[in-house]
Nucleic acid binder design. Structure first.
Lengths: 153, 153
DNA sequence: CAGTTGTTTTGACTTAATCAAAACAACCCG
DNA sequence: CGGGTTGTTTTGATTAAGTCAAAACAACTG
């Protein structure tokens, strides 16, 4: 970490973000946010494994709990692809969508086709109050198309 | 092509549909399709429970296998809402979307906002070959809004 | 610095789904 | 209409993903 190639938020800013959502600032919480910045689209297990590298005493349940409270607070977004555990990312509020590879499970961000509102507004909301919209494109990534077999990643 | 939109398809038509997809026609398969027509957005467990009412010898694994092969054949659509097991429905190919209640888990169909193509075309496919698109609106259903607590449905 | 409140750990548990191999049934062909 | 092939289903064990409850603990307030 000596070389300053960080396009990422500093720990202090992360703390403010957490506090700003009305949550107490703890080491595991900062670690979870850091992990999600470096590795978006991570599963709870993957986040757990990463967090343990720096905070070896952290439990899996803590990570599940942190991800749940962050999701509730709007700090992270949860995403449930088919045939995969839930994934988490900290890009929120920008109405972006996901490309999911059915071959290897790779998930990639895509910006919204339409722009803003239309993608968040169903034709008939049937009395629902909409909080968020999730758009997922299922397909085959470049590597899986080329090799005919799942890429490892 | 299966229409999938009529509320009551006769068993013989179901059989043709199954056969038309290159799959062998068996009693559990017909039963699974019937259940999905009467109760869309059912989980594998729910389908299993329903199928057992008429075919008591059917195993859970059969149902999982049938749902997987039907999904692969394009006969049914699989849908993974947050905090819920995977759901299945037999409305396919009409680019419709889903309203999912975060309170009680209720899932409801909505027709596409845009119409046709735009919802199926990401702005930049990053080399992916897109097979299908899934649009999910997360919110609170009428009942959950009214009562402030999850409706049992 | 002590108290309150919310967080994390620990450990057992539930649900959802998958795997492998043997028993079985549907469909094709003569 | 009956045998053979192929695909399906059953059986039983196993894994993965996530949840629950209560005690130990740590962050923030005053």
């Amino acid at each position: 970490m000596a070389t300053g190639t960080d396009s990422h938020t500093h720990p202090d800013a992360l703390k403010s973000t957490i506090r700003g959502s009305g949550l107490k600032v703890t080491a595991p919480r900062v670690a979870v946010l850091e992990v999600l910045q470096h590795a978006p689209h991570s599963s709870a297990e993957q986040v757990f494994a990463e967090v343990r590298k720096t905070l070896s005493g952290t439990s899996a349940q803590a990570v599940y709990g942190i991800l749940a409270s962050f999701t509730g607070a709007g700090l992270v977004r949860r995403f449930d692809p088919p045939n995969s555990p839930a994934l988490f990312e900290c890009r929120v509020g920008d109405n972006h969508h996901h490309l999911s590879c059915v071959g290897c499970g790779l998930v990639q961000d895509v910006d919204c086709v339409i722009g803003e509102a239309p993608c968040l507004t169903p034709s008939d909301d049937s009395g629902f109050t909409i909080y968020s919209a999730e758009v997922t494109f299922n397909g085959l990534c470049r590597t899986c198309q080329a090799t005919g077999s799942p890429a490892t990643g």
